[in-house]
Design a protein around this nucleic acid. Structure first.
Lengths: 184, 184
DNA sequence: TTATTTATTGAACGTTCATTATAATAAACC
DNA sequence: GGTTTATTATAATGAACGTTCAATAAATAA
């Protein structure tokens, strides 16, 4: 057995396809073709397309928070924190892709269809906000700065779909630089 | 013949359904059922689902810019402009719905599939940015403030999908209040 | 009033969808 | 060596997809 199991290859390939084209747009067959496996190989590991999506989202959340973790400066006040948070997020996007947020997309496509998927996506954003707010306490910035930072990150993700990343980053850094520690 | 033609009813109903569930998720049949017409009634007015989408997006763009136009204060500097722009945008969202940006969604779902739709969506954002930048010139704010404002609007649209609108608005107004006219 | 165009109908088309059935092997594990 | 675990290929399932057929009703024009 080589380094990556077939289950992992399916997860990776499907995640990429879903991110590029959307969940409903990507058929099971196109995943199977891309991976090069028979239908039953997929259905052996995941009992449906939607279960596969759930696993993809859970994995992705861990990977994203892990990635942010590494780059963030928590020891030099709001300005440094905000700057490194934005930098970490744009670094993620540069390797992951510029097609918007997969969680928001999942929520849009599965709200009213599969509530587990929709809930996972909403919880992901809530978790992000809570993580940020918790760290803001360290240098006693107000909780409201947390909402602002989440909003800036989401603004980055959205605008990067239609603008040059360089322009997006510049604007984001400038917004962050003007934030006030007491946020009022 | 009553006030609204069947073509208009199809456009309105389809736009709502697409906005609620996404383009690929909404089948032609579900539009027809909701409107209460036979397939050929739709195909008489639009020669395909994708043509229908194109018309919906064009109409929506006019409606949105028209809506913004009415509420914006262009005569009292950057702070007043930014505040009324944000207010106009959130007012639009409150009546239109909190499911993200239909143009970005169209771009995501049709990039590589139907380039007319994808292009329309990208152009919509470019137009929005240009309109804002042109108005910023009036009170000689830098062009960079335009990118920042677009980013704030997109941040609002995204975060409103997972947060209370009240919290979203508060954060947006605070970010805008801290913007500098020379943006440096 | 008839002729013609415009608008609409219900049923059906061929295709693709996610999923399962079947049956035969491989590979990994004990 | 026997048993579980993982995979292959092919085909079939029923449902949903976007679209078209052929017929007709309604509106318009002569």
């Amino acid at each position: 057995m080589r380094g990556v199991s077939k289950k992992e290859v399916i997860l990776n390939t499907a995640e990429n396809l879903f991110y590029q084209h959307g969940f409903h747009a990507v058929g099971v067959k196109s995943i199977l073709n891309e991976v090069g496996v028979a239908p039953m190989t997929m259905y052996y590991h995941f009992h449906s397309k939607e279960t596969l999506i759930v696993e993809i989202l859970k994995r992705r959340e861990l990977r994203y928070f892990d990635f942010l973790q590494k780059e963030i400066d928590r020891d030099n006040g709001l300005a440094a924190y905000a700057e490194t948070l934005i930098k970490a997020h744009t670094d993620w996007m540069k390797t992951d892709g510029l097609n918007g947020c997969l969680f928001l997309r999942a929520k849009q496509e599965y709200e009213g269809v599969n509530e587990e998927i929709a809930a996972l996506s909403k919880e992901h954003k809530k978790t992000l906000q809570q993580k940020i707010e918790q760290e803001l306490k360290t240098f006693n910035s107000s909780k409201q700065a947390g909402t602002q930072l989440v909003m800036i990150l989401e603004g980055i993700t959205s605008t990067a779909q239609v603008m040059a990343m360089e322009e997006v980053e510049e604007a984001a850094f400038r917004i962050a630089k003007n934030m006030r520690a007491d946020s009022q």
